[in-house]
Design a protein around this nucleic acid. Structure first.
Lengths: 221, 221
DNA sequence: TGTACATCAGTGAACGCGCGTTCACTGATGTAC
DNA sequence: TGTACATCAGTGAACGCGCGTTCACTGATGTAC
């Protein structure tokens, strides 16, 4: 009878699955559609981050997802709509990383961790997860819809950082938070365009120490 | 006879023009070819700066120059070669602007002028003449030839700034010069992605004051 | 000076290719009875 | 439970378009005699 209980349990879960996913629609389930859309967005955001907005193609995306290109328009109004959604996803992911950094940490710890991670050589050498680093030059070349989403994303990130500095009793000035982000993003960008590794590392180190000193944070190295 | 003198003068200029321009070649003059090439590069560098590397097209470029697309290959080996040349031109122009800033000015004056101009709201609101601002996100997406030229260009700019700080008796550390450039380029990029004009201006002002304080320069505002 | 010839920047058709979008369709999966 | 029907995500041919590059050519401008 324990087995039966188990079976019941599984049946219940299946029922739950079906009622939640099939909604009142026919044909493919809404969950299935949502999963496909999520998959497309996930793939699109990777391409957007890696190759930029101009290289994000509908046909290539669908092929990567194992689908044919015509089906794209069941999920997105246009390529531009996809671009905006993918960009929002990149900013949401950044916001999530900020959230993870600050969870269980004091504001000062969060700031220090954030700065250390951002200005680590590993960040320079990898595909940056930060949309500001990967996409700042694209801002003025893209349509208004893209710019608007970008600006909303930056605003939220700045507010999160300003929240930390305020909670740490340093300052509630958003311009300080914004210029820290600007300074760090610029440092990553420039460290990438310096061939000399020693000089490149020095740029990151100098920036890290300077920002931390400015905020009254201790620097380990 | 004054008229004759004038005519002689014109004739002489024509002769000069012909001997200088026709060189030893036949058909079109070398000067004519060089002028066309220069025109193409000038137009290409504007497009590169404005619309980015991916939007710089051979056919569109030739049409803008009033030529047909086939003739392109008399001047450049490939689109990629054009891209690299156009990029070099942008960096050369930047280097020229740096030179103009420092002519007839003390190192400290040059630094102050440079910082003030770079972080002016006018820079944020215009198409940036600085290749770092306009192209930093493109670096990792473009071919090696592009990256190499970009890195050479940045290196020269950093050396020029380091030359100023050294001559001013501040520091001979290139990492300081590089991180100033990074800070400023980042500030312009971020000020553009902040919708709130007041906050955007504050980012620029905060960055300017901070950099000047760091270098021991007086700030007018 | 005048004429024959050589050069080569520029022309424009053609190449193979990829793009975003549309649209008539198919077929797996749901509901209704 | 079994069967008829409806839905709609996904298919794939087709659309007009633009891309970078090649190539046989043209014709303006030079040199040679």
């Amino acid at each position: 009878l324990t087995i039966l209980d188990d079976n019941d349990h599984l049946d219940n879960e299946d029922d739950k699955y079906h009622t939640e996913s099939r909604s009142g629609e026919m044909g493919y389930s809404q969950q299935h559609k949502a999963e496909t859309r999520a998959k497309l967005l996930r793939l699109a955001s990777v391409t957007l981050r890696k190759d930029g907005p101009d290289k994000l193609g509908v046909i290539e995306l669908m092929r990567t997802a194992g689908l044919t290109h015509g089906g794209f328009y069941a999920h997105f109004k246009s390529r531009e709509a996809l671009l905006v959604e993918a960009l929002k996803m990149l900013f949401d992911e950044a916001q999530q990383r900020y959230h993870n950094i600050s969870t269980g940490a004091s504001p000062r710890e969060a700031l220090a961790k954030f700065i250390d991670q951002y200005l680590a050589p590993a960040h320079r050498d990898a595909l940056s997860p930060c949309p500001i680093v990967t996409l700042n030059s694209d801002l003025l070349r893209q349509p208004q819809s893209f710019r608007a989403a970008y600006r909303v994303g930056v605003k939220k990130l700045v507010e999160t950082i300003a929240g930390w500095t305020e909670a740490a009793g340093i300052t509630d000035d958003q311009a300080v938070a914004a210029s820290i982000l600007a300074d760090m993003a610029g440092a990553i960008a420039l460290s990438r365009s310096v061939a000399d590794k020693r000089l490149s590392n020095n740029v990151l180190n100098a920036t890290r120490r300077r920002i931390k000193a400015r905020l009254g944070l201790r620097d380990a190295s």
